[in-house]
């Protein structure tokens, strides 16, 4: 058994929170630059220039990329051979979130009760744990902005539904998000499992390198087809028109029941932020 003190989890989460909120992911940056080169619409090009300049400004001034520093999601892949000692795991994670968010001058966007809306603070984070083979812990911090989270959709399709119908559903979700959720989007999609599985897969799909398509041939084809159709919607960066409404579509799938076909869509704004480390 490899022992890992909980304080190491805290330190790692703190560092990742600051990094994720300030430094734009390299894969996202590459797609943004390539979109800027292709953009011919003047207003859209100016908006993409602003997005690229914003990434430089955030990194140079150690300021969060966006004032919405998100609902912090923390994904932990914990090796079966690891024993975490000391503080409770959730407390260790939330201590790290508070420290990292304070260090990066983030916003206290979390309210402790969804109805009374009281007590805004940095934490608690939404924590997902997976037990995996090995003796390491992989920590991923994903601050999810709520302008885009509010556009999340779930549909329980009939199992006999065609792939085209699913493609069109995802395109419609992007069309309905319109300019509200900070396009150009990265569209996360989860297919299969139960309703909860599909939603979680859609969120996790956003953690995959946005330049890489799914290794599954059918999903790969769907990702390309959805992207092609979404980029014909003429919503464009900030809703100012043009050919870049989405940068990428990431789909993840899971086994499901013979009676069902859940499809979840979780959109990310252009400021897709996450950071990972292995302990």
């Amino acid at each position: 058994m490899r022992k890992i003190p909980a304080v190491m989890i805290t330190d790692t989460v703190a560092e990742l929170c600051a990094r994720a909120n300030i430094i734009l992911r390299q894969d996202v940056l590459v797609l943004l630059r390539s979109a800027r080169k292709k953009e011919k619409n003047g207003l859209a090009a100016a908006a993409l220039d602003a997005v690229l300049e914003n990434a430089r400004a955030a990194a140079a001034e150690r300021t969060p990329l966006c004032q919405d520093t998100g609902l912090p999601y923390v994904f932990l892949e914990i090796g079966q051979g690891v024993l975490i000692t000391g503080l409770r795991l959730d407390a260790a994670v939330n201590n790290g979130v508070k420290r990292g968010y304070a260090y990066a001058s983030c916003r206290e966007s979390v309210v402790s009760h969804p109805l009374s809306r009281s007590g805004s603070s940095y934490a608690p984070a939404v924590i997902h744990t997976d037990i995996v083979p090995g003796s390491r812990v992989r920590v991923t911090v994903f601050p999810k902005g709520f302008g885009s989270e509010n556009k999340t959709a779930l549909k329980m399709f009939r199992p006999t539904e065609s792939v085209d119908e699913i493609v069109n559903y995802v395109v419609t979700c992007a069309a309905e998000a319109g300019a509200d959720a900070c396009p150009p989007y990265i569209i996360g999609c989860g297919i299969g499992g139960g309703a909860d599985t599909a939603c979680l897969l859609a969120k996790k799909s956003l953690l995959r390198d946005v330049r890489r398509r799914s290794p599954d041939r059918l999903l790969h084809k769907m990702e390309k087809e959805i992207l092609r159709k979404v980029n014909r919607l003429n919503i464009g960066p900030m809703g100012l028109g043009g050919r870049c409404t989405a940068l990428a579509v990431n789909i993840e799938a899971s086994p499901t029941h013979i009676a069902g076909l859940p499809v979840a869509v979780n959109i990310s704004c252009h400021a897709l932020r996450s950071a990972s480390a292995v302990i």
């Binding site: 908006a47 602003a50 914003n54 400004a57 916003r107 302008g147 900070c182 900030m238 704004c269």
Partner: peptide
């Protein structure tokens, strides 16, 4: 509309900032 998701860039245009109402609302 302005450049959404570009808060670091827009901050450069702000010369002064002060809370003038509802300080209990935080952000």
């Amino acid at each position: 509309t302005t450049y959404a998701g570009c808060g670091a860039l827009l901050a450069r245009t702000v010369r002064k900032a002060e809370v003038v109402a509802y300080p209990h609302l935080g952000p």
